[in-house]
């Protein structure tokens, strides 16, 4: 534990635009962290979980030409319990989002989410559709967004590299999964007359009453 000195973040990292702002002042780079993250970033197992067109490019990324295993991201696991990374590869529909949230809740920490392509980022070309959720980040936290419709396999690999950079920046001291207390469970959305986000139920109720009374909802 002697290595866990509170060496402050090096200057060049402080100014590195790749380091997220909220990590800048409390990241401790230690040898232990390095070993810990070195192991973690090279053994991320994605979940075998495809949604739409982008899933085809995701499979192409995992195939021989691009070979995901080169990064140590060896296996696509079909069970969320064995997966570290969820690649939201395609259009997230309202009918599907309860399942996605449920899968996310079932993934053990540390877990990461990549929103692959325009649809997963914010709805994409189908954003205007009535059954389309405008971005998976409305419900689950996303670590890396990729632009493109669909992103090339190389673009997906690039996002993996970005995610590895992010993993490198995390420290044992403050990673959320060693904190005490209840785990954050995201309430599963409900399919009512339309998609209902339980976290916003009160707000929805209020606005729906306003609209019913003929007032414009702010």
């Amino acid at each position: 534990m002697a290595e866990l000195t509170n060496a402050n973040m090096p200057e060049e990292l402080q100014n590195d635009p790749r380091v997220p702002d909220d990590l800048k002042n409390n990241v401790f780079i230690t040898s232990l962290d390095k070993i810990y993250n070195w192991g973690r970033k090279r053994s991320v197992w994605p979940m075998l979980f495809g949604l739409a067109c982008c899933a085809i490019e995701m499979i192409a990324t995992a195939a021989s030409r691009h070979d995901l295993s080169r990064f140590g991201w060896e296996l696509m696991r079909a069970s969320p319990r064995q997966a570290d990374l969820m690649i939201v590869s395609g259009t997230v529909t309202k009918k599907m989002i309860p399942q996605i949230v449920r899968l996310y809740n079932q993934m053990p920490e540390p877990r990461y989410v990549i929103a692959m392509g325009a649809c997963a980022t914010a709805g994409g070309p189908f954003k205007e559709g009535y059954n389309v959720v405008s971005g998976v980040d409305k419900f689950i936290p996303v670590d890396v967004y990729i632009t493109g419709c669909p992103p090339r396999p190389e673009a997906l690999l690039h996002s993996f590299i970005k995610l590895q950079e992010k993993i490198e920046k995390q420290s044992l001291r403050n990673v959320p999964w060693y904190r005490k207390g209840e785990e954050d469970v995201i309430p599963v959305p409900v399919l009512g007359p339309d998609l209902v986000d339980p976290r916003r139920a009160q707000e929805i109720k209020g606005k729906a009453e306003q609209i019913a009374e003929g007032q414009p909802a702010a």
Binding site: S134, V190, P193, D194, Q202, I204, K205, K207, A208
Partner: peptide
């Protein structure tokens, strides 16, 4: 953004007077 244009922000629409706390689904 489309989100800024509509009252519910999200891509959703409910019947008038909808009560999310008390409905069957």
């Amino acid at each position: 953004l489309a989100e800024e244009r509509v009252p519910w922000q999200d891509n959703v629409n409910y019947p008038p007077g909808f009560d999310p706390l008390n409905f069957q689904a």
